[in-house]
Every structure is written in structure tokens, then in C-alpha cells.
């Protein structure tokens, strides 16, 4: 997360890292890149979060979870939802990408490759089970709008692919 717009006070980082994404519990919201700023003003933490997708139903829960985690660390907080700059999969950290893969969700490819696999049927997404690239697109939408459904033709594992979003 090298995004220059991000502004998070160092001492708040370990607290925020404990909050996980309700839809992908292995992933912290920090690794997902949805926390854009967290600064302490007059003893109150002002947090700005941004949704991954406009219709992300997890945002209310994420807001509440952040409030709760900060409260346990004796901080009061205000949560604000911001839309700009718009979230991109580039904000998922390397640690986040690894957590996704370990969980069974293939991490997003770059924009070019993403188009090739989703539109041209190119086999480039690595199977999360056996690492084979002999994988086939089943559906452009998976269990949530941010994912597509793939199937490995070597080990036959069906799995989700996190689509590139930028």
C-alpha cells in the first residue's frame, strides 16, 4: 500500500490489522487497502474507509468492527465512507495476495492478463490447489461480484479468481 493518499498513524496500525474482511475472514482490512486514513484528532480517531465495490454489503460491518477494535484499545472513533480515489485491486498488499491464495482464491492478474483470461479464454490463472495454469473460466461472476469462477482441468478443483479492478 504505497498509495500516497493513505494516511494512517503508526500506533493505530496493529489495531486496524486485527479487523478482518467479513467476506474473506483470512484477510485484514489493512491488507485489503480499504482503510485510507486514520488520524487522532482531539483524542478521537477519525477513520476514512472506501468500499471495494459500490454495492459492497460489508462496509457497514467493517465500520462497526473498526469502531469496536478501537474501543477495545480505548479509542473513540468516527468512521467516514469515502468514494474518491476509487479502490483498486492494486491496493491489496503482497501479504494480502498470499492470504487470498492460501484461502483458495486466486489473486488478481494485471489488467492485460485479466482481460485475456476473462474475454479470450486464455489459461493463465493459477489453480489454488495444484498451481497448474490449465484452468478454465466457468462464469464471469462468482460468489461475489468481485470474483469470477474458474475450474482447474488438471486436478478438477473449482475455485474463485479475484478479478482485476482498476
Amino acid at each position: 500500500m504505497l498509495e500516497e493518499d493513505q494516511n494512517i498513524e503508526t500506533r493505530l496500525i496493529p489495531i486496524l490489522e486485527q479487523v478482518s474482511d467479513p467476506e474473506i475472514p483470512v484477510l485484514s482490512i489493512m491488507d485489503m487497502g480499504v482503510v485510507r486514513s486514520a488520524i487522532i484528532e482531539n483524542g478521537i480517531v477519525q477513520v476514512q474507509i472506501t468500499p471495494t465495490y459500490s454495492g459492497c454489503p460489508a462496509m457497514d460491518v467493517i465500520g462497526e468492527d473498526i469502531k469496536k477494535a478501537l474501543k477495545e484499545a480505548n479509542y473513540e472513533s468516527n468512521i467516514e465512507l469515502i468514494l474518491a480515489p476509487a479502490w483498486t485491486t492494486d491496493w491489496i498488499t503482497p501479504r494480502g495476495r498470499k492470504a487470498l491464495e492460501d484461502y483458495g482464491i486466486a489473486a488478481p492478474l494485471d489488467a492485460e492478463a485479466d482481460k485475456a483470461v476473462l474475454l479470450k479464454g486464455k489459461r493463465m490463472v493459477k489453480c489454488t490447489n495444484c498451481s497448474s495454469q490449465n484452468t478454465k473460466l466457468i462464469s464471469q461472476f462468482g460468489s461475489t461480484a468481485c470474483k469470477a469462477q474458474f475450474k482447474c482441468e488438471d486436478c478438477l478443483e473449482p475455485f474463485d479468481y479475484f478479478k482485476c479492478f482498476k
Partner: peptide, 20 residues
Amino acid sequence: LETDIACTNISLDLFGQVRN
């Protein structure tokens, strides 16, 4: 199943935009 999921995901995106 796939088209069902796609249609409802599109719907969810549109509702998210509407809320904004």
C-alpha cells in the same frame, strides 16, 4: 446458476451506485 449469480451481482452493483 452462473447467469443467476451474474444477474444478481449486476443488480447489487447497480443498487450500490444508486445508494451513492
